[in-house]
Design a protein around this nucleic acid. Sequence first.
DNA 1: TTGAATGAAAT
DNA 2: ATTTCATTCAA
Length: 869
Amino acid sequence: MKGGGRGKEPPAAGEVTGKRPKRKCLQWHPLLSKKTLDFSEEEEEDDEEELEKQSVPCVQDQEPQMHFGSTTEEVEEDSNEQRARRPMNAFLLFCKRHRSLVRQEHPRLDNRGATKILADWWAVLDPKEKQKYTDMAKEYKDAFMKANPGYKWCPTTSKPVKNPSCQPLSNPRKKVWSYSSNSSKDSTAKKVPKTDSMPQLNFAMADPTKMGGLSMLLLAGEHALTNREIPSSTKPSLPDTASEGNSFPEDKEEMLSGTILNRVPDITESRVKSGLSLLPESSVPAAHEGKPCRQSALFQLAEMCLASEAGKMDTVISPPEDSSSTAFLQQTADLAEIKEEKANTDYSPPSPHTSALLPPPPSITSTSTDAIPPQLSSQNACVKKKSKKKEVAKSIDNSELPCLTKKKCDEAESQVDSVFSTIEAVAKGAWKDSGEKPKKKIQSSPSGGISGWPKKKSKPKVNTFVKDKEEDLDDDSGQCEQVSSSEVEMKEDVSAISHKTETDEACIGITDLQGTIPEPHCSPCAHSPTAVKEEDRGRERQGEMSCESNTENRGSRKSERSCKGALYKTLVSEGMLTSLRANIDRGKRGAFRASDHAHDANWGDDSWILPQMGSNHPKKLKKSKSKDESSQGLGKLEEEFEKKFNSLPQYSPMTFDKKGTAVSKKKKIDSSTVHEETCKVAKGPSPSQKKTSFHKIVRKHKHKKEKPGAMDTAVVQSESMMVDSPSKAKSCATIAIMCPDVQGTTNMEMLVGSQKRKARKTKITHLVRTADGSVSPAEEDKTRDLNQEQDKKPLPQQNLCNEKGCFSNLTSEEAERSTIPQELPAFFSLAALAEVAAMENVHRGQRGLAESQKKELTQTPVLISCADQ
DNA sequence: TTGAATGAAAT
DNA sequence: ATTTCATTCAA
């Protein structure tokens, strides 16, 4: 059927160009930009940012993971390729937000169909609301542009924008997107000054991604550090590094600068403080030195890990959760001290290598292992996992398969290893970046000598990689500038390292998880940081408890997260991350907020995050969540996801229907869809379809009004339908009644929407397909027309509907799902709906849902808001 | 990998 | 004016 049609779209040009081959584009996230932002800026934003941050990492991680095998490297390597994805437009946002709803209603409907419906809804959507989405989109775009100054939608030429090599990141960061409710403001800001340097990638982003969950930490750290950086800023090399590996370099520096062990404590404190209060100065000497160091949360994490390994971490870690910032800090400090001591004891003796961070000597490792609280290990694992899950699989193939296969390497070892690996990876990354600095202790031992590094006993693989990398690094070492030249290498190395390590870790983590918990969900966790949070709370899967100290809950998987989470929490507690806290406070429920509010307030961060989440592990999450169900268990991910999105108003289908009717939108209705549904209805629609059919029917009527010519056919169809099912007929009638006024004025042309474009190509196709057998294209068209015709209606209705609170109800997912009936009342008479439902049920053979719906419908007062009024 | 929708941007 | 591509996910 489509074959012919298709030809066109897929098209030609597009194909070749590479259209969809999914580029490796990293998805841009507001967070990225925010990342750059100073936390200090806006509290609100901060909150959001926090959330975002969390989420971001995941996202980022995920992406890389996704592509991982191929992509990861690509990302790093191909800065060029990686193009940031273009920001979604209002419609896409809308789709993203509502697709699930549509699907709920019409389970059978595939995405295409859903898209059509969404298009209809969109068409019908009140201008106000549309405006919201538009604004969002705009902001999003603005932010995006800021982040990626030179970004071109069409890669066509080349992606000039990014360059990998050396551009200074700093600029872009500035503000990024502040979220302002008002759309307009952003526009001005848009591109702003930033140097164009920021390549699309936002390497900054990239790094974090790599980092995984850590990214957030990094952000925080960076944020704090940022100040410093600026001063030193100019390092040519840095920027480069930053661009590339960004975060790493900084870390690296730190690493290099001081012995990690020793430094760790200090750094940690400093970072923490800085992060919190922005204390700056004192600590982080290293950073000052040469580079800016963004320290990163990552670094901290590493430190923590080390410490923990040392044995002390437990303490440290635990605090975070509870804690208030101060306590935490103090503890940290204490820990640091302790660490130092131990470190000295344990580590120092052996070698200065990089000291703790990197490769703890085997002995140490063992020690650490013992001491290591699951948390740490878990953390590491978690972090990596996130990013890697998918990757892991791939990567595993390469190097780590064994782990997977085994699945159970010693957990302890694995964990430890993972930790180390992580650290190492980080260090390496840093080193690379920092390569310039002579400091690198590691360097002290030439590549060959590095042995210190690669401590991992258990996992030679990692070590090997690391070593190799190190060597590479060494080679490269040092030269940030070189980076440009050797960027690729760097990237590769880094990526490889990180990945590998991650992989290993991931494997480990997975193993652990599996061991502890069979569920695969882990991966999901990775998906969204935010989710993680919630999960942590909510989920209590016992898990290993590794994180006991850490946070409240967390099962094994969580443990990892928890670790991170601990940091976050700490930060939050301190006030660093307001938003986070807020979220936590809200819990899942936050969703409710009025659409508007939410929209304004949260929109930015939250919304973004969620989506990504979804995208990342769309399959798992979504399905699981699908909706209602998810609320129960799954919920968290979804919840968060929705929450964010929720900030945008989500409308119930009913609303749309109403609006559609009410509103004059021209919308086109998808004739095809309508037909299908109608047909279905007539036939014996599937349960899910009922609604759809109903809607469609309504629409048809509308359309009919609009187009007389079409009307005829449409009418006929409708008639037929009616005949088929009296109930339907009634509904139709009802509708007609309701919207009698149809101002016929309309225009024939109307077809605005979707079909316009596609009409050429697709339209036909649709028709054919849609036909599902029954429909013929012509009819559909007619139908559409008819619908359109009818579309016009008095605005008031719309308002009413809106006012009624379709939104309010909707916001919460639960409400949405459960509620359809509730929603219904608005537009059409309930009775009609009920009838329809009844019919459907009959056809189906009754489904619980259907019945329930009917009941509800019937019960609900019949409002005939429609028209008139 | 395609397609359905809309829209912004680029060509 | 036309083409890309952003999201989503079943075919």
